[in-house]
Amino acid sequence: MSKPIDRRDFLKLAGLGGVVFASGLPGVTLGAGQDDFYFVQLSDAHWGFEGPPNPDAKGTLKKAVAAVNSLERQPDFIMFTGDLTHTTDNPVERRKRLSEFKEIVKDLKVKTVRYMPGEHDASLDNGKAFQEFFGATHYTFDHKGVHFIVLDNVSDPRASIGDEQLGWLAADLKQQKNDAPIVVFTHRPLFDLYPQWDWATKDGAKAVDMLMPYKNVTVFYGHIHQEHHHMTGHIAHHAAKGLMFPLPEAGKAPTRAPLPWDPAQPYKGLGFREVDADTKAADNKITEFPVVKA
């Protein structure tokens, strides 16, 4: 069996995203001699952003790539859950940013890297530029017995999934067994986390309703630039931190403006999580780690 990722490796990923083990997912039962696997979720790189909230705006993504590459045991794949780039009204600049982002992440050792758009990438042109560089904005794939579904709730600038994609989701779910381990990736939360800051998906409840009959569903998303864990019934929703700047907790600040950079405590407010589980109980256990090694 492969050497498991250790605490030092986790710390290398401090502030850079989420590490998710298959054994931490409900419904995944590893057979004798079967390797566990894990994937890394990276989110909200906002390539192209410039400003005081991150004096290292040009360097953070490259550091994330280096940190992932330095892991002794490499993840099976990496998932970027949107906002690869920071929005721009200029379509030429948008493509330049997407191109630069793609060039930087090309250095990842792991060659299975999957992408989905955030509203910064896709909402101004319905995902056109994103698709030119990264292909489809919603799709499925299977990996070692886990069914993964990537849902696009950003290409519509109204923050909707849309009936067409919901129909596609329904058709895909029909092919799944009731107890199949299913992981859903989205950019925005599927539930109303805080609509006052647009932290919601207008028709997200329809997707959650479709997923509800399935016993082992976990949702990973980005958008809010911070750890957040929420349950809709038996479905867990986990938000990842961003790679550019943290945002305030919902409603805890007058606006959703990025938190200021603290030179005394760089990367303050960032961190990472480990998701592990008692597979028999199909119950996630979340361990939070501070961003700075004590």
Binding site: D89, L124, R158, A159, Q196, W197, T255, A257
Partner: peptide, 18 residues
Amino acid sequence: TFVFLCDIFCGTGHEEMN
């Protein structure tokens, strides 16, 4: 006191439009 916002992504300053 209640927040109102723009909920159709409209450009670079969209997130400040409230």
